Computed example of a mutant assay.
Amino acid sequence: MSYKTILVHVDESTRASERIKIASAIAMTENAHLIGTAMTGASRYLVQTMMLADTNPNLRTHLDLLRARAERGLDDFENCVRRLGLPSFEKRLVDDEAGAGVCLQARYADLVVIGQNDPGEVSPVVMPDFPQYVVLNSGRPVLLVPYAGRFDNIGNHVLIAWDASMAATRAVSGAIPLLRRAQVVEVVVFNPQLQPQAHGAMPGSDLALYLARHGIKIEVSQQQTDLEIGDALLSQAADMDIDLIIMGGYGHARFREILLGSATRAVLETMTVPVLMSH
């Protein structure tokens, strides 16, 4: 298994270059094709209606401004990947809201790279629930890059949050190309006695055997904690000098009302290292 197509969300935010750099590094290592996609923020249904009617000059002017903004982000993307020497890439401008646009294109990618929501940088294109929406609706592993910090190398020292759930299973499976290149892979199982039917007599041992067949060695630890799992996970990552967390993303959405699990919400809000999530 390897990543052959990687999709990265592009915009004019101050952190766009960081996630482009990370996505490019993974694409280079995996010999993958990188797609930089920028959304105008205009609903594709509105744009289709405008194309049919074409009677509102104010809407047309506004759409042109949104497209120009997206094009500037794509120009920055192209300049960045050319400097890095990435041989296979393309850029896409899409008339759509960011979440819906990324999720639709994610169907044809192996990995999606997006940014954590920055509460200090309001975007006219990206809604505040963008990261969680993509995690829950893309159907792909999503690599989230924090809005603060530099990450020159990720995936050397990896922490897997394992609870034997379907979401965690999808996250681990989707991260196998990264895990194969890791120097150290740590697995933490919090409070395994609460789910004995899922973990068996030796929590984490089945995961160790599964990953060993992929050539990946892991170290498993079982920990008791009274903390919220998200807080315990982030604390563990800081103590172990982790540069990538892999975990399931839990929640459900009705229209744009998203209800997240507590651990997922805590990590999305306060992550300090990149996190790969799958739902």
Rank of each mutant, 00 (worst) to 15 (best):
R60N: 12
L63W: 07
D64F: 07
L65N: 13
L66R: 13
R67C: 11
R67P: 00
A68H: 12
A70M: 10
F77N: 05
E78S: 14
N79F: 06
N79K: 14
C80G: 04
C80F: 01
R83I: 12
L84P: 01
L84K: 08
L86I: 08
P87F: 00
S88Q: 12
E90W: 01
K91N: 13
K91L: 05
K91M: 10
L93A: 07
L93T: 11
L93R: 12
L93Y: 06
V94I: 15
G99S: 08
G99P: 01
A100W: 06
C103T: 14
L104Y: 10
Q105A: 13
A106D: 08
R107A: 14
A109T: 07
L111I: 13
V113G: 03
I114L: 07
I114E: 01
I114K: 02
G115Q: 03
D118T: 08
D118W: 03
E121R: 10
E121M: 08
S123V: 05
V125H: 02
V125E: 08
D129K: 11
P131I: 11
Y133R: 11
Y133D: 09
Y133W: 14
L136F: 04
N137P: 06
S138T: 03
R140P: 01
R140V: 08
V142E: 04
L143I: 10
L144W: 00
V145T: 09
R150F: 02
R150S: 14
R150A: 12
D152T: 11
I154N: 02
G155E: 02
H157Q: 09
L159Q: 00
A161K: 02
A161W: 00
A161Q: 04
S165Q: 10
S165H: 09
M166H: 13
M166R: 15
A167G: 04
A168R: 05
A168N: 06
T169A: 15
T169P: 03
R170F: 08
A171Y: 08
V172N: 05
V172Y: 03
I176Q: 08
I176W: 04
L179R: 01
L179A: 02
R180Y: 01
R181N: 11
